[in-house]
């Protein structure tokens, strides 16, 4: 499907191309419950990021753009300079709520609070819609402790529960990575290269990769906690690269598998000396050098007064 929006003057795309599941574009059940593109706080970066609530805010979707240089669309009888392809994919709203639970927990020193007082953000007015999503009330216990006083429920962030929940997410992701045949190891497979070692991605490769993926949805501190919780050693991050260089990112530093230094043994030198000289070298060796000065004498510090 593609929608049309007119921004003739300011160079914004006039049209965008997106792929979305049907549930994202269901017609609204009531006139005021149309699907809504809105900015929310990205739980990983804390920056404004685009999300989509479907009709009646029953479900949350994240919006990602496939964006490469030098691409444009032909749409019907028009040309769209912006060659992006937008993907609208379902997302667990707990990730976004988690951000606010953690924040509230820090600010309120572990007080139990009603959720609608936690999930509030003056910069993002549609933030409370997160709580309207189906199943949020039912699944909030995965990341928070619950207290019921009278008819009202109060919640408090629980890191322990969250880590347990995230571990499940990691395991689900590992399953998905395997079933989609996604290469998770640090090696790049080349069809023509036959390695002496059998290339199999280890369980740790999968878990680390899945952890990296999940980390795109949680704050950095929590990501580190999760790594510990999963029993994976933290890797030293490589030195920051100057931003101009493009480079494939890997979770794991690439290390040489074979040790070539053993070939650099000292007998290499002697070998070389014994090796045959070329014809020209032989010819040079035969030259009568008597009466010739060594070249180094020309550079000696004290010029000898020769008489």
């Amino acid at each position: 499907m593609h929608g049309a929006k007119q921004h003739p003057a300011d160079g914004h795309p006039g049209q965008w191309v997106l792929i979305a599941p049907e549930s994202a574009t269901d017609p609204p059940k009531t006139p005021d419950s149309e699907p809504l593109f809105t900015k929310l706080r990205n739980p990983s970066t804390g920056e404004a990021t685009l999300y989509l609530f479907n009709s009646g805010a029953q479900q949350l979707f994240e919006v990602k753009a496939f964006h490469e240089e030098y691409r444009s669309w032909f749409i019907g009888q028009t040309v769209q300079q912006d060659g992006r392809l937008l993907f609208v994919t379902p997302m667990d709203p707990l990730f976004l709520i988690l951000y606010y639970l953690i924040k509230a927990n820090k600010e309120q020193q572990g007080k139990f609070q009603p959720l609608d007082q936690v999930v509030l953000d003056s910069e993002y007015p549609s933030c409370p819609l997160l709580l309207k999503c189906a199943d949020v009330k039912q699944y909030i216990h995965h990341v928070a402790e619950e207290k019921e006083i009278g008819s009202q429920k109060f919640h408090k962030y629980s890191q322990e529960k969250t880590l347990k929940w995230l571990k499940k997410k990691v395991n689900q992701t590992v399953k998905a990575l395997k079933s989609n045949n996604i290469s998770v190891g640090e090696r790049v497979h080349a069809a023509t290269y036959i390695s002496g070692k059998q290339i199999t991605d280890t369980k740790e490769d999968y878990v680390r990769y899945a952890h990296g993926l999940i980390s795109e949805y949680i704050p950095e501190d929590l990501s580190k906690e999760l790594l510990k919780y999963l029993g994976l050693p933290e890797l030293r991050s490589p030195a920051p690269e100057p931003p101009l260089k493009k480079r494939k990112l890997s979770d794991v530093p690439v290390e040489a598998e074979e040790d070539y230094t053993k070939f650099n043994s000292s007998n290499l030198k002697t070998k070389k000396a014994n090796s045959k000289m070329s014809a020209a070298q032989k010819a040079l060796a035969k030259v009568d050098k008597s009466g010739m000065k060594s070249i180094s004498t020309f550079f000696s510090s004290k010029p000898k007064a020769s008489k």
């Binding site: 990602k64 937008l86 996604i182 993926l213």
Partner: peptide
């Protein structure tokens, strides 16, 4: 993460 980087996917 390299999953997104390798696929040229970015948030909007």
């Amino acid at each position: 993460h390299r999953f997104f980087h390798e696929r040229s996917l970015r948030p909007l």
